[in-house]
């Protein structure tokens, strides 16, 4: 007796968003990256399309991250002392599809770099790597509102991914992205209603929906991952039912969250029951990524090259067509 397969007929799909711009398009990138376009729940190839596979953005800072785990620092060594060198290593050895550059040194407590210095850093990264680049501020609104517009202007035409636009602070960043033709990251605090509301606010300023990537503020494995997982599933279900203001590609700061966990960091000497620390940390980041890939992440912001290699293999396996 043949089984009657159940296929959902979805009316909506995720908007395609392209990052970066090549010389013909007014930028200097060697390639562009397109994410989104899915018309089914994650990986259900039998009832919809996944035209673009999820990509990995490697997190790069403009200061040496002394506080990061030794396992991650060891992976890049001295390259981490310079953002451009680090970005180059991330592309050549780390498997980066794009660079997620965090301008942390703009923070008055972490270097107080001026907007001009930040622009110079971004320019240097752009000159060194050919992949698209995301540029994020230091997290202090007053500072970021000076830094990001300066970067947007100096890099006009590159179609950077600029962030972070939040409900409390989106005007300046969105305006800068709009004028200089960049894409923005809209960050909301693990709340699907606030996520949707922010997308509406941003599009009302005149930027088209295909220039927005959503950052739902994921939780890492063991620390709120399930909230992010369910927000992701609900957003995808809403998108497939035709809700355009939810139907945007999703970015998740996997490395940042995963490497915050105690389980990723404490040594085997302190917690012998948890096994080897380096392996555990890498898999903590990997499993955070792998589980959220099942709820619909499009861009994974990651740190450890070995975790990235594992996730890319997983994505390749998941992209294999299935037939029913």
């Amino acid at each position: 007796m043949p089984v009657q397969i159940l296929k959902e007929r979805n009316s909506g799909k995720i908007t395609c968003v392209t990052l970066g711009a090549t010389a013909e398009q007014g930028g200097t990138r060697a390639c562009t990256i397109t994410v989104g376009g899915e018309s089914s729940l994650p990986w259900l190839h039998f009832e919809g399309e996944t035209p673009n596979k999820p990509v990995v953005a490697v997190e790069v800072l403009d200061r040496y991250p002394e506080e990061w785990n030794d396992a991650v620092k060891a992976a890049y060594g001295d390259a981490m002392k310079d953002a451009a060198t680090w970005a180059k290593a991330a592309v050549e050895c780390g498997g980066a599809d794009l660079i997620y550059l965090r301008l942390q040194s703009a923070d008055p407590e972490l270097g107080a770099s001026t907007p001009e210095q930040c622009v110079a850093t971004v320019k240097k990264v752009l000159a060194t790597v050919g992949v698209p680049v995301a540029v994020i501020g230091c997290g202090i609104d007053e500072v970021d509102n000076k830094v990001i517009p300066a970067v947007a202007e100096a890099c006009a035409g590159e179609n950077l991914l600029l962030g972070l636009a939040t409900t409390e602070n989106y005007n300046t960043i969105v305006a800068a992205a709009m004028v200089h033709k960049h894409t923005v990251i809209a960050q909301s605090p693990l709340d699907i209603n606030m996520c949707k509301q922010l997308n509406i606010l941003i599009t009302e300023m005149g930027i088209p929906a295909d220039r927005i990537i959503v950052d739902p503020s994921i939780g890492g494995l063991g620390y709120g991952l399930e909230y992010a997982y369910s927000v992701g599933e609900r957003a995808r279900i809403g998108s497939l039912q035709g809700d355009k203001m939810l139907a945007l590609p999703v970015i998740g700061t996997v490395g940042f969250e995963a490497w915050k966990a105690k389980e990723a960091n404490v040594g085997a000497d302190e917690f012998p029951g948890w096994g080897d620390q380096a392996e555990r940390g890498i898999l903590w980041e990997t499993v955070t990524a792998a589980s959220l890939l099942q709820s619909g992440l499009d861009i994974l912001v990651m740190r450890h090259p070995e975790a990235i290699a594992l996730v890319k293999k997983n994505v390749a396996d998941l992209m294999a067509p299935s037939s029913l």
Binding site: L221, G222, L225, W274, D276, E279, R280, V287
Partner: peptide, 20 residues
């Protein structure tokens, strides 16, 4: 079968099967 390999999966089970 390494502890470092199983612990992340144990944590994932706790997360996904928690009552929303």
């Amino acid at each position: 079968d390494e502890k470092s390999q199983i612990l992340p999966l144990a944590a994932l089970k706790m997360n996904i099967f928690s009552d929303p």
